[in-house]
Every structure is written in structure tokens, then in C-alpha cells.
Design a protein around this nucleic acid. Structure first.
Lengths: 192, 192
DNA sequence: AATTAATTAGTAGCAGGTCTTAAAATGAGC
DNA sequence: GCTCATTTTAAGACCTGCTACTAATTAATT
């Protein structure tokens, strides 16, 4: 690799370490064909910690990350919401959501987006899904952008009837009708 | 902490480091009230690497783990299966599956278990969920063991009608009826 | 040529080890 | 008590991958 300017090198450095935080200064020095001191200066200027600290922070997140990925309360990104009325969420279909062979998004992820949206728009301490009726209109592939739109159709006591339709570029790929219950705190704190 | 025997200490050491791989020898020495040398001997005998290596291996798994958790093709553990007939899967409800406040398992996880089971029992190159009708009978709390039982009710061409019931200690908590489509490979390889 | 910016070199020191050799301490058996 | 094996400490040299600092060298720029 030919010599880059300082600015280029530092940009590149950031990316490299983002991809692979295990790289030590010596390896980076060889990579950019500069001295180790230069790399250390770069890290200093960029506020990038040493390799052992980088690894530590990756490891620290490791335990909690498994949690945070799975335990997102809402699947997808809430972009609009009117409590007890409606809402919209967007989910990018990434590799993680997909069947390895066919690259088709597993159905339960589409359900999860719709279900968590339906729950989210309920104005209550907590809401639980009581039942759902869903239909998948066509398979969803990696990279497609799932836009779920929820609408509260009817409210009867603590029962909320919510319709969700998920579209890709305006094409309907999923429809669901959910019955959501709002739950009082005292009910929830009972021992399971 | 009073002095333990060598064997006790070593057992204990393994557990400790399993819980918290970040512990350095000095901390362990204080913990067990022995010298650092003793801890090092213990690690040597037990084949436990030094703290930096332990952290590294945690970090190394981190990147791949995020993927593997989410992209499991089957949610829960398949413990019995008869293709095109029925199957059983078990899912332990851990903290990761749960709403933070209420400690109730989010509905889409229960759906995911049932749905992936329904798909798994279909004898085909690939199977996709066409529609589902589900009912949640009662909230599921952390620690409860979800046993999902699927039964193929009817087959019509490439349409499979599958009923899934999920129970905890024999008590029904979830029922679902799924229509699953088996898919031919050429259909799946079309560009999305 | 003079000045400034960027790079390289060199030294001391640190954390958390390894590996080796050797000396104590402890416990069990007689 | 004494003896012997096990267990525990201790001490020293060396290692990696740094930090922190000082100083020298090498481009660029004016």
C-alpha cells in the first residue's frame, strides 16, 4: 500500500478498527506502511484506545448484546404513533432475519414487527396480545424495507382491535388483525 | 472467606471465572485468600488461560453470537418430529424474551416458537407461512417452560394446515392454526 | 533558508501475565 | 517427636502491547 495522507490514513484507520478491533499497532503500522509511533499518534488524535481496551469493550457488550438484540421491546423503528389510534414502523430486512438457504425473511419476524407495533400504540401501562389472525401475501427477501401500518379499529373495555398491514414499496406483503389487552399493574405483578 | 481445600478452591475458581472472565489473578487471590502464585498454579492445572485470553475469546464470539441468536432457524429446541405429521419443541423463557417491566414473555416469541415448529415439520425444501390464527390464553412469565406441540391436520396440494398448542405444565397458554406452503426451489430463487 | 507539520526513534515505566527454580509451610503417617 | 509428600509462597528473568515523554529527522510550505 502506498503512502496516504495523514487524513486519509486516519479515516482508513477508523474503518479498519471498526471492522476488526483486534488489530495491534504493529499490524496497523505494517498495513499503512508507517512506523508504530505514527499509528499511536493517530490513535491518540482520534481518541481510539489500545487494543486490549477495544477487545474488553467488545467482550463487555457480548454478554449484554445478546440480550439487547433479542429483547428489543419494539421490533423495527417506530416512526409515527398516535396512541389508541395508529402508528407506523419500519424494519429493514437484514441477513439476520433471513432463512439461510432461500434468503426469505422468516415469518415470525414480520409477525414480530406487526405485533410489537400493535402493542406499542396502546395507551396503557402494559398491553398483551390476546389473539391474532395474520396472512402472508408474498415472501420477503433480504434488503426489502418493511413498512408496517397499524390502525386501532375498535376499543371494547380493555380490548383493542388492531389491524396491521405491512407493505414493501406499496405492495402488501402481510396483513394481521390483533386483539390486544391492556393490563393493570396489579394483575401483572401476580406470581406466574 | 476461610481457606478451602485445593479441590474445593479449584472447583470454585472454575465457576467464578465462568461467571466473570474479567477477573485477574490478584483479585482471585484476594477472593480465595491465597497468594497469586497459588492461583496461577490452579489455572495451570485447570488449563484456564490468562485474563486477556479469556476476554479475547469472549469478544471473538461476540460478533458471531449476535448473528446466531437472531438467525436461529428454529426457535426453541426440537425434541420430537414426524415429518408432515407432528412435532414438539421446548422453549425456556429466559430474561431475554421478556418485557422488562412486567417480566411477561413478549407475544411474538411464543408465536415464533409455534411458527418455526409448524414450518419445521413440513417435509419440503422450504416452507413458508401463509397465514396464522393465534390465541394467547394467559401471560407467560420468566422461567416457565413452553412446550409447543404441532399437528398437521390436513394437506391440500402444497398447503399444510398445522395446529400448534403451547402448554406450561399441561396448562394451555397458546393456540395457533397455521397454513404453511411448501415452496419449490425455482420459485424461491427468483429475485425479490 | 526558515518555519511548520508530520513522522520516526528512543527511553522509562506499567499491567498482567509466563516460565523456572527454590524455599517455606502444612498435613499425614508412623 | 520426626519424616516425607503435598501444597503454598517467593523471587527473578522475560514477554507483549501498550502509555508518556523527549528528541531527532524528514517532508511540505511559505
Amino acid at each position: 500500500m502506498k503512502r496516504l495522507t495523514k487524513a486519509e490514513r486516519q479515516e482508513n484507520l477508523k474503518e479498519r478498527l471498526d471492522e476488526d478491533p483486534f488489530l495491534i499497532d504493529r499490524e496497523l503500522a505494517e498495513l499503512f506502511n508507517v512506523s508504530i509511533q505514527t499509528i499511536r499518534l493517530d490513535r491518540l488524535e482520534l481518541g481510539i484506545p489500545e487494543v486490549r481496551e477495544r477487545i474488553k469493550s467488545v467482550a463487555r457488550q457480548a454478554s449484554s448484546k445478546v440480550k439487547s438484540v433479542q429483547s428489543e421491546e419494539i421490533i423495527g423503528e417506530l416512526i409515527d404513533i398516535q396512541l389508541n389510534d395508529g402508528g407506523i414502523s419500519i424494519l429493514e430486512s437484514t441477513e439476520e432475519l433471513v432463512l439461510e438457504k432461500s434468503k426469505i425473511v422468516r415469518g415470525h419476524h414480520i409477525f414480530a414487527q406487526a405485533n410489537s407495533l400493535a402493542v406499542a400504540i396502546i395507551d396503557a401501562d402494559a398491553a398483551l396480545t390476546g389473539s391474532a389472525e395474520v396472512r402472508y401475501n408474498r415472501p420477503v427477501y433480504v434488503g426489502e424495507r418493511l413498512v408496517a401500518k397499524a390502525k386501532v379499529e375498535k376499543i371494547k373495555g380493555n380490548r383493542f382491535y388492531v389491524k396491521v398491514e405491512t407493505k414493501i414499496n406499496g405492495e402488501s406483503v402481510f396483513k394481521g388483525e390483533f386483539i390486544i389487552f391492556s393490563v393493570k399493574d396489579d394483575l401483572m405483578n401476580r406470581e406466574g
